[in-house]
Amino acid sequence: MNVLICNDRAEPLDSLIGILENNRDVTSVKVATNGRHAIDALHSSPIDISISSGTGLDFNRMLQRHIAPTVAASLTRVVATQSPTVPLFVKAHQFGFNNVLPLTTPEEKIVPSLQRTLSGEESIKDHPSVKALHLTPGALTHSISFEDTNDQHIVELVGVGLSDHEIAEALNLSIQNVRNRVAHSIRINQLTNRTQLALLQNTNWQIPDFA
């Protein structure tokens, strides 16, 4: 098992790194301290599992968009945290993470848990706080897409908190047209409601390239 640890200053995973480095079932442990390191590590050699801290959740979602689709598809993603709260489980689920590893897990059970996650035997979907909610896993993982620039303008205004009537007035469109287009954007982005559309629009981050 090849592991990449995205080590976050706010919630360092140093103890986990030590445990994994000393385990014979773990072939390699790479440690990334920033986004560029993580992207380079994922592209340079095969990584089975990437582990982020709870505070690195949003960053890790953004990172997912910057790696090759083939790499992203084969990567199992885990959140390791000292405080596995229900909101963290739900957020990780919506961001498409495969599991949450509480750092209170006994040392000898950490690697077996990661192995079960890798094989699909253990998943965040089976956690009681997530299972009961019938959410769409990974709903907020992908980048937002638009049919055309008109739809983009409408969704941008949804993202800044305007109602459909206000959007219709601002863009000089009929309310029927605005609702049809909002519905269309919800559908093509595989979302279920307007709040998700606004969130996806507002978190449609890209790493700026100043080079």
Binding site: N180, I186, N193
Partner: peptide
């Protein structure tokens, strides 16, 4: 498009 659930759900 009909909007229900307090403006959340859009059905065409």
């Amino acid at each position: 498009t009909d909007v229900t659930n307090d403006g959340e759900t859009y059905t065409t």
